[in-house]
Amino acid sequence: MPNVSVNGIVIDDTFAEAFGMRATAIIITAPNRKWARQAAITMTGFATSVIGCGCEAAIDVELPPSATPDGRPGCRVMIFAMGTDELQKQLLNRVGQCVLTSPGSACFAGLEGSAALKLGSALRYFGDGWQISKKIGGRHFWRVPVMDGEFLCEATTGLTKGAVGGGNFFVMAESSAKALVAAEAAVAAIGLVPGAIVPFPGGIARSGSKIGGKYKGMIASANEAYAPTLRGVVRSELGVDINAVLEIVIDGETNDAVAAAMKAGIKAVIELGPKRGAVRISAGNYGGKLGKFIYSLKDMLP
């Protein structure tokens, strides 16, 4: 099938290729929205890619007081990793250093999964013997004394083995400013999709990579086919009209969540139109042989 054009934007006849991952979610609450977001942003910092960060994490959705277990504003944070052990380690380190420490915070399970990951049941040792266990309505909480009162933390949270990491699409534009506008529109739309996160800075990656490289030990390196400065030098995927490419990488709780997020993001880019935003949309893959999940762009159109 040749490339199609929707609202003046060329959609490449290609697909995104994604992988199975392990994921968990927690709900962080705080006395107000500002501090709920602060704790969530701190714990999801340096969590853009499993290549170098151990996990991929971001705020999934913000929760109003009516949707949290303690009636305070909150955020649902999702964390993705390649294995259960690494996910467990990242979860405890990040909640322990970034949420436990954040003023007025509390932490609850955000996922009912096939297995449990330790949360409060490990962090409780911070209480040095003064921690209090409470079982309320079948849920187990730890109350850990801290300097502004108590850190309430659910004992465990759920783990899902059905998560998907690496759903993606490329936003390609005539200038970097237009690419950024289009990518921001996509990120805003994906932010409304529950169960999906965009872990890169502001949800956008400008250094989309290929696997390996010419230097020994490089797991990932420049994707020269999409680098506009190399257009005349290498076998480029870019036409003369493209001067900037930004990638939206999506991790989802389920296959459906990733597809919904891709659809929402692509819809937002298409609605923005080629004059203000992108002129072309593509996606990254490895020939379809490595990833278990395939998202064909033509199926993701609005």
């Binding site: 609450t29 303690d70 309505g137 502004d148 009162g149 108590e150």
Partner: peptide, 15 residues
Amino acid sequence: PESVFAAVIDRHLIA
């Protein structure tokens, strides 16, 4: 001090 536990148990008792 402010207590999240109080909020959680209050909500549980009402629910």
